[in-house]
């Protein structure tokens, strides 16, 4: 509050209104998160009805409950599966999308314009039309209940958005650099790997983080394709929690919800500059 007061002294009453407004919005936006943190330390019976954000006597029971796992499966299994899929997706997206983007931005080949238009088209394609036929495809290939259906698209650059983002970024790179490389006798592969990729780091990091978070949060993919609980991701583990313990163990479910968010929140705190600043400005350059 003293900071606020100082700000008001310096900038006048407009600043006070600004800060008050921002704080009110902040309260509304963060309320669900803070509520979850508080609720995870409350006994199950008090979670819904109690209005206090934080309990008078916080308990750790909800968290110790998590160490028992769900249906005999330790929570760590879900986290490992999610990590595997998320990291696998990141590698796939970074490699395949950057290759495609390089071709669009730096190679002059026949049919490029048409393919670029198609790629933009898939960016706007609602996935509904693909759910059933892709499922049938993977069923025929006997790939249901494997991670392959969840990963393969990432290795085949089907995330048009990231291709688009990287094309934008590569176009912004100074032309002299790759022209110089060509004069030095570098082929496209060398130029791509040693010159363009290192320079694209901001776009790659942004794509990587979003890919990780999307894969981590994905619900429908695992719901359709994973059948055995020991292959479940965190999202599906949470779903199991709802199915099995909503009655008996509301607290455990809330605690698990919070734990499931931690990796996403950690990425956000660590990389928020990349996510917000880098993206907003790098996009505008194009």
């Amino acid at each position: 509050m003293s900071l606020l007061a100082a700000a008001v002294r310096r900038r006048g009453p407009g600043a006070l209104a600004w800060h008050l407004g921002a704080l009110v919005i902040l309260g509304v936006v963060l309320y669900p998160v803070v509520w979850t943190i508080g609720a995870s330390f409350k006994p199950s019976a008090e979670i819904i009805g109690a209005l206090d954000l934080f309990p008078a006597d916080p308990i750790g029971d909800n968290y110790t409950r998590l160490t028992e796992g769900i249906a005999d499966i330790p929570i760590s299994t879900f986290f490992l599966n999610s990590t595997y899929i998320a990291v696998g997706s990141v590698i796939g997206v970074v490699l395949s999308c950057s290759l495609t983007a390089y071709a669009f931005a730096k190679v002059r080949f026949a049919g490029r314009n048409v393919m670029f238009a198609i790629m933009i088209g898939t960016l706007l394609l609602p996935y509904h039309v693909l759910i059933i036929p892709q499922y049938v495809l993977f069923q025929k290939l006997e790939l249901i209940n494997t991670f392959t259906p969840l990963l393969i698209g990432k290795y085949l650059a089907t995330d048009a958005f990231f291709v688009f983002l990287m094309v934008q970024f590569m176009r912004g790179l100074p032309k002299e650099l790759d022209e110089a490389a060509r004069l030095d006798g570098c082929g496209h592969l060398r130029t791509y790997w040693s010159i363009v990729m290192p320079l694209c780091r901001p776009a790659l990091v942004t794509s990587a983080i979003f890919t990780f978070i999307n894969a981590w949060n994905d619900f429908m993919g695992p719901l359709l394709y994973l059948n055995e609980p020991d292959k479940y991701t965190v999202s599906m583990g949470l779903k199991m929690f709802i199915d099995q313990d909503a009655v008996a163990d509301y607290g455990g479910m809330i605690a698990m919800s919070l734990v499931a968010l931690l990796p996403v929140l950690a990425f956000f705190v660590a990389f928020q500059r990349y996510l917000i600043d880098g993206m907003a400005t790098s996009g505008l350059k194009g």
Partner: peptide
């Protein structure tokens, strides 16, 4: 590092099923 992580994951899953 990422590749290592994913390899570790792969190993674990393979062992798991």
């Amino acid at each position: 590092k990422l590749a290592g992580l994913s390899a570790a994951g792969l190993g674990l899953t393979a062992a798991g099923c």
